[in-house]
Design a protein around this nucleic acid. Structure first.
Length: 154
DNA sequence: GCCAACGTTGGC
DNA sequence: GCCAACGTTGGC
C-alpha cells in the first residue's frame, strides 16, 4: 500500500464539499502537471492519501481519502467547454489522467502546515520543501504514521 | 497583493 | 538543446 497527499484549494473544492457528495466520492480531475500526472498513474486501489487545503488562511492536512478507482483518462481535457480543456489531448492518446477518491476521515481539527513544520521527523517531507508546488506528492509510510499520530493527539 | 520558486513555451 | 520570457503556485 502506498501513501499520497492531494492538494486542493478549499475555495474551489474542500473536504466539506467532498463530505456532502453522494458516496463521499469524487474524481480527482484537472491535474495538468506531468510530474503529478505520473504519480496519479502510480496509484493503486486502496492507497491512502491526505487531503490538503492550500492557498487559504489555514493551510494544512484536513483529512484522509482512499483511492477507489485507479487512473483513467481525464474527461475534462477532452471537453472544449471545460476550463481544463487541453486540445493536445485526445481519446486515442489521452495526455491527462484522473483517479476516484472516497472520504475516509475528516479530522476534527486540521493539522496545520505550521505544525507540520515544527516536527523534526518530517524534515524530508516534500510538502515542506522550499518552493514545493507539486499538487500530488508521495508520502512515506513513516511520514504517514507520524502525521496520523498528530491527528489522534489533536 | 507580493514575490520566490518552479514549470512550460517557443525562438533560435 | 539552450535559455529568456512568461505563467502558475502557494505561503505569507
Amino acid at each position: 500500500m502506498k501513501y499520497w497527499l492531494l492538494k486542493t484549494e478549499p475555495d474551489a473544492f474542500s473536504i466539506d464539499d467532498l463530505e456532502h457528495l453522494p458516496h463521499q466520492t469524487t474524481s480527482w480531475e484537472g491535474v495538468r502537471n506531468y510530474q503529478a500526472r505520473n504519480l496519479i498513474r502510480e496509484m493503486s486501489k486502496d492507497d491512502m492519501a491526505f487531503f490538503y487545503h492550500s492557498s487559504c488562511q489555514f493551510p494544512g492536512v484536513v483529512g484522509v481519502v482512499k483511492i477507489v478507482k485507479t487512473a483513467y483518462p481525464d474527461g475534462t481535457a477532452l471537453n472544449p467547454s471545460s476550463p481544463y480543456y487541453d486540445p493536445k489531448s485526445s481519446e486515442q492518446q489521452p495526455r491527462w489522467y484522473q483517479v476516484d477518491v472516497q472520504l475516509v476521515k475528516k479530522f476534527r481539527q486540521p493539522i496545520l502546515l505550521q505544525q507540520l513544520r515544527s516536527i523534526s521527523a518530517l524534515q524530508e517531507f516534500i510538502l515542506l520543501r522550499k518552493g514545493n508546488r507539486l499538487s500530488i506528492l508521495p508520502v512515506t509510510e513513516e511520514q504517514w504514521h507520524r502525521i496520523c499520530q498528530m491527528a489522534v493527539i489533536l
